[in-house]
Design a protein around this nucleic acid. Structure first.
Lengths: 193, 193
DNA sequence: CAGTGTACTAAGCGCGCGCTTAGCGCGATG
DNA sequence: CATCGCGCTAAGCGCGCGCTTAGTACACTG
């Protein structure tokens, strides 16, 4: 029986609430009640409601960026590399669909400074996709006309999943991830081995 | 010099405000000020802030559903049909990117009844995509394993565009629409003529 | 068993929200 | 030129928000 610290219980409650109602429609009373505490408890552990969002958003962006960098570095084969990237990126959004909903859709609720920081992580993520696609094209393994545009389309598929994905629905994270990895390879015109 | 009715000026102002800040972060004072009126004027022409959102959302859903039905009916050739659908659907989201942002991302702010109605339109849209893909697969023109999953992926590409699309950026609605139509045909494994 | 630090709560402040009410200005009508 | 009604506004109500302050319960220490 491990005790979950109050600070984390509040973060988990905030993820749930932000994902269900959105940041602006969520009250600090809702978050603290979900965590089984009084309204004032939130301010013992976190500076503000926005700070709570920032912590969730920042951790999520660092997490996915790291994951993609690892997937990129895992092999030099463009086909396996892009497939792994799209598989992992999609799977993360399915497994952590609530967290991902907050990470992807509540950026505009951050303060300008926090928003700028997060925008940097997002550019990094785009660049990793672009590099993976461009390298495949340069090696003649992919057929691509618009590298940044194609990168955006692949990222969009995975991100938009959090708008409709239901954890208790028929699709498992692995099955969507496999489908989207296959679609990504088709979209880049990958030569089938 | 045509006079724009106050009712529509308020709707246009609401689209701008909802798209920039989101429904819950937008105040009725903000909307009426943008329309050049006093706060009370909003309630002369609209029953509530939610009703304003519903009108925007409903019109947008009917609009896109109709557009897709037309594109579906325009030809019996699966390849041309799906290309037209994805082109038009993508182009609409680029041309009306602010309106589309509200239509796609503020559904949870609707009343349960309005949300249910809009959900029906969304199911219709999914079904049109599924029909177009299934028919291509049945005729042996497409290679598809998961029809509903592939439909969701194509829809996601177009919808998620409103998260990043900038009207004054380098990409024109037609250029993104063309790219996404091509990617859609690749994703369904369309035989090139 | 008094003293102390930690983790939390009870109570509530001030603000800005969605929305209402009462009434005004003014062109159209007789 | 009195009357009416339409389109709009000035003023403000009551509520629930984010957040603060002052204090309490209690495990731990000597």
């Amino acid at each position: 029986m491990t005790e979950v610290p109050a600070r984390e219980r509040l973060m988990d409650a905030a993820v749930e609430a932000f994902a269900e109602r959105g940041f602006h429609a969520t009250t600090t009373r809702d978050i603290s009640t979900r965590a089984g505490m009084s309204p004032a408890a939130l301010y013992v552990h976190h500076a503000s409601k926005e700070q709570l969002l920032y912590e969730i958003s920042s951790a999520g962006h660092l997490n996915t960026r790291h994951m993609l960098a690892d997937a990129y570095a895992s092999t030099a084969d463009p086909v396996a590399r892009l497939a792994t990237m799209q598989f992992e990126f999609t799977k993360w959004h399915a497994v952590h669909s609530k967290r991902a909903r907050v990470v992807q859709y509540e950026i505009s609720a951050l303060t300008p400074e926090h928003r700028r920081e997060v925008a940097g992580h997002r550019r990094d993520i785009e660049r990793i996709y672009q590099d993976a696609i461009r390298e495949g094209a340069d090696k003649g393994v992919f057929e691509i006309e618009d590298v940044p545009g194609t990168a955006l389309a692949l990222i969009s598929m995975a991100i938009d999943l959090v708008r409709w994905y239901q954890p208790d629905g028929p699709r498992t994270p692995d099955s969507v991830a496999q489908l989207y990895a296959d679609l990504a390879l088709r979209a880049v015109g990958a030569r089938t081995a």
